[in-house]
Design a protein around this nucleic acid. Structure first.
Lengths: 400, 400
DNA sequence: CGAATTAGTCTACGTTGTGGACTAAATATG
DNA sequence: CATATTTAGTCCACAACGTAGACTAATTCG
């Protein structure tokens, strides 16, 4: 529901607007901020003063562009005050990133483990150790970590921070957010969704695209107009269970012929003939492809075709501007990108002028953790005033 | 991009908030408005005074609820001042509706014609005559028609009001908005999208659902959180070309095995064995079904199964709360609803707790025209201040 | 070195919402 | 039936915030 706007909300919005403009444009003088925001110089000056006070932006040296007139003083976001923690708990690794408000990655901790072999609480304990260590290091350098985001492989209840169902981990209804207990607010979200946001903020993503996350399962994150599309219950983007052939092979989900049975990591390794994916991994596959192994190339064709079929359904339903392939599809891209695009093109070319271009993610397995941190930073940009209150840390409880 | 908020924008938002609250709740006193909006009584009184001045709301008699204390004066939206025109140009009929701000339908004009046999400009001329007649009648009763919405069967460029491609009419790049030239602002939009909005505002739709429009083509309109989801280019919802069987029958769109080839009106009539759909229509089909005709029942099963398969892909991707079947699926619902739900249930039950419920549209072929009018009325509610300016009709041109 | 130009600040002011006192109109109570 | 109580709505002084334009500061051009 829409909310009433009072003076404080007006101010909060304008403050957010100025900070967002500074962040997206890198650095700006007050005068040019006034121009791009439509606010007056006076108002911009006041807002910038508040942001400087809060430590969210800093003045750089005076700008000298050889222009006439008094040179303006540029401000840019400060990366030294506020940061966020990005966590990923996936089937075969744990990842922690600390990212500052200027979107610089300050710390990377990664741990490779097979979490299918462990109890949920043990895995969460591992991640907690990693996260607390990162937190301590970040705070040691004077950064204030304002929150954490956690990516998990499966649908979650964002409100409660509970994993609804992560079939590839074998987890059901695990309250992972509460169990982590990091001492900072935490937001749990589906891995594919956060990887999409990671791609948006740290990678190749533009404002509108569909990110495809090829892990053990296949997920998708849809970004529309710079925002994540989550669906009514937050379960949107289950690309892995889109129909490829309605009477095809049995899927773990109970249905038949789902995309995951053609292009999921396990199905793909099966098709290749490699029975020990965890021993060899995707690098071994790439190696075979580079040597022109026929069975592996055929597996790519089959997976790429299925992905193209499922994506053409997705494009018809959801009309993304671009497709970005991530996860295992990134290293495989040279061998499947073409088939995917061809299959899509054949199915879509006539209805639309052309099928959306297929691009490859550059972030690798870092995407989701970065997106998780980015999402927290975004809340800071959305309401810098709320943060300043938190920074000054008045001990009075928030007046409802 | 976010916009700067100044005092005028603050006021516009609060005005909109109050009007929206009055509209959704039917009628309210100023005191209860203050409570639900969070604004003070003073502010609400001022805003309501403005809305009364503009004629957008009216006071009803004093409320008497047997409560203690001074009785409040309820206000409700006035249906006698502002109205909108809803138009639909479809393959086999033209429809015009006049709907007032209180969502009462004031006028219905419908004309059955086969528009595939005519030139675009002739069809547009027919619709124009109908619309102008409705406009004149509405203005004759003192209503101010603030705009028109037009539903067309195919993707459109909303900016220019051009039909991009309406395969079932055989039209391409027809600037239908400009050609209608009604003298009021007009917004052109895909029929399925507007039917979904019609269902939202005038029918069974809640805040989140996927509306399925079964006409000659099959479209879908996705409503998320009370707003239409249009995709990056506005071409979202092409359910008719979602894959059912990747190597199935050839579709007009160039692909194979699209839903339309299984459950589109033409495919359905073919399956029934009725070679003259326009002579007999859907009523004849229903008649046969009521008499238990085996071939027709089998056709329903096949169409329902295909629809269920395509919808399970859609649900996996987009996670709607509910499915609403409209168009020809509404009269066929008793015979296909069950198959659709079963097919979906079998494919989805394990991944989600349960598949979304399948409901039936109550609006029939009126949905799109009502949605078209409703969309225009929504712009009035979103910014009542802009309308008041238009109502007072100052002759100075809008300042850039 | 002065004119022109642009950045940023300062001050008076306009718009809008707030809070609480005040008035109005009903029911409950004795 | 008179008075207390309760709720609705208005009034008024005030606070928060953005605006407009004068003013000061710092630079380049000629």
């Amino acid at each position: 529901m829409a909310q009433a706007v009072r003076h404080d909300a007006m101010r909060a919005r304008n403050l957010s607007l100025v900070l967002r403009e500074v962040r997206t444009r890198g650095s700006l003088t007050r005068a040019s901020l006034a121009e791009v925001t439509g606010l007056t110089k006076t108002t911009v000056s006041k807002l910038v003063a508040d942001l400087l006070d809060a430590g969210l932006v800093v003045e750089t040296g005076a700008v000298r562009a050889g222009e006439r007139g008094r040179p303006g003083v540029e401000v840019r976001v400060s990366g030294d005050r506020v940061a966020a923690l990005g966590l990923e708990l996936n089937v075969d690794y744990l990842a922690v990133r600390v990212v500052d408000l200027a979107r610089r990655v300050r710390l990377r901790l990664t741990q490779t483990v097979d979490n299918r072999l462990s109890e949920p609480l043990d895995v969460i304990g591992d991640l907690r150790r990693l996260a607390l260590s990162a937190l301590a290091q970040a705070e040691g350098t004077g950064l204030r970590v304002v929150g954490a985001g956690l990516a998990v492989p499966g649908p979650v209840d964002v409100e409660s921070g509970e994993i609804h169902n992560a079939p590839n981990l074998g987890w059901r209804n695990v309250p992972v957010g509460a169990a982590l207990d990091l001492g900072v607010p935490i937001r749990v979200e589906n891995e594919a969704n956060l990887a999409a946001l990671g791609e948006l903020w740290f990678g190749v993503g533009r404002a509108d695209f569909l990110y495809v996350s090829g892990e053990i399962g296949i997920g998708a994150g849809l970004v529309v107009n710079g925002a994540l599309f989550r669906g009514a219950r937050g379960f949107a983007g289950e690309l892995g269970h889109v129909v490829v052939t309605p009477e095809g092979p049995q899927c773990r989900c109970g249905a038949r012929g789902c995309l995951e049975q053609y292009a999921g990591q396990d199905a793909f390794f099966d098709a290749v003939g490699d029975r020990s994916p965890y021993a060899h991994g995707i690098d071994a596959i790439v190696d075979r492809l580079e040597h022109g192994d026929a069975a592996t190339l055929a597996a790519c064709d089959k997976a790429g075709w299925a992905l193209g079929v499922a994506l053409s359904s997705a494009i018809n339903l959801v009309d993304p501007h671009t497709i970005v392939l991530g996860g295992i599809y990134a290293p495989l891209f040279p061998w499947i990108g073409g088939v995917v695009a061809e299959t899509m093109g054949a199915r879509l070319a006539q209805l639309r002028a052309q099928a959306p271009p297929v691009e490859v993610s550059q972030l690798g397995s870092e995407a989701a953790a970065l997106g998780a941190a980015g999402q927290v930073l975004e809340t800071v940009v959305a309401d810098p005033a709320a943060l300043s209150e938190r920074l000054t840390d008045r001990r009075d409880p928030a007046p409802r």
